[in-house]
Design a protein around this nucleic acid. Structure first.
Lengths: 181, 181
DNA sequence: CTTTCTTTTCTGTAAAAACAGAAATAGGAG
DNA sequence: CTCCTATTTCTGTTTTTACAGAAAAGAAAG
């Protein structure tokens, strides 16, 4: 019995695929991910093909991508030569892995470019000051954000969850004037 | 003199366009945004076309999109009938507006779907427990995250910046065992 | 080593998205 | 109201991306 026989499960998978594509993730990749997330047992590639009506090659690439993100892993099933796959079910871990990987792929290269540009523009009288200033400001801003993220994400999961529960109340600990709450 | 005559500015704009497309934002849209971000004066559509070598229609749609995000606004220039446009230069504001808008477009609809699915699956004996449980868990997780975001983003900018500077040190205020840092 | 099964890579096709140019609409100025 | 200019919408083309099927490569079993 396929999991897509459950209409709600199928709808979940289809929606996940759509959502992925809005965030620059291949639809097949997100669908395979959703399927594995809903499955309580390891699935082999052929099974995924049949369930999602995708070509074998497509599934192969999707699985490679998901393993690249670290949110899907191969798992051996006794007495079966084929590779089987399972997904993270801890959503917090999953989000962290996706975020870290996307940062690595898309933010870090941008930081390098911005760094280079800022260096090239250093002290250049032939370039309008506001151009230098704005590129520099973007560089600083993204550097600060990612630095913050790299710092905070190393906190134990329990601490992060506790901080989330606190919400805007964390502001209480900021010793500043101009405080709203 | 066009801003793209400065090679560094042009590289910034081109890279911004590429980055956007990796995050599901039309390349032209991000390029127009980058150009306006670097400009110290309002630009009209025709000027943007010439600078970025884009068709007028394309620029028109890009500007509409950027105004939809709230990060670009029309600005009247005395003695000129044409619309002129400027972009936010405060990067924090900009990030917040983009995040809020993307949440509205892509996360909120997902929450609605997950909510519906969770409701439909309520007490359904014909659906495996783990399917119900995992869809429900995804729903809760995304609800918690977005709830946290909606809460925190209302804090004054200064407070948020102070919290960022604090980084993982905020964990000090969490009264839990198992604390690292 | 050979056979058989599994997975990956490659290549062409199909689908989707981006884009340009033309046509239509809107909106001031006279 | 009419003209003129600016803007948007519409339609067809181009480009990009996703995808399928075939061929190749890899890997365990005999």
């Amino acid at each position: 019995m396929k999991i897509t026989d459950i209409p709600e499960a199928e709808q979940f998978i289809l929606h996940w695929g759509e959502m992925g594509s809005h965030w620059g993730v291949n639809r097949s990749v997100s669908q395979v991910h959703a399927l594995l997330y809903l499955s309580d047992r390891p699935l082999h590639a052929e099974e995924i093909c049949e369930t999602l009506h995708l070509a074998r090659s497509n599934v192969s690439n999707a699985l490679k991508e998901l393993q690249g993100y670290g949110i899907v892993r191969r798992q051996h099933v006794a007495g079966d030569r084929r590779d089987h796959f399972v997904a993270d079910t801890d959503l917090w871990d999953m989000l962290m892995k996706i975020t870290v990987e996307r940062k690595k792929r898309e933010i870090d290269p941008t930081l390098i470019v911005l760094n280079d540009l800022a260096a090239q523009l250093e002290g250049r009288k032939d370039v309008p000051a506001h151009v230098r200033e704005r590129i520099g400001r973007m560089h600083d801003f993204m550097g600060n954000l990612t630095g913050w993220f790299d710092d905070v994400r190393r906190l134990p999961k329990g601490t992060l969850v506790a901080l989330m529960k606190l919400g805007s109340k964390v502001a209480r600990f900021i010793p500043t004037r101009n405080q709203a709450g």
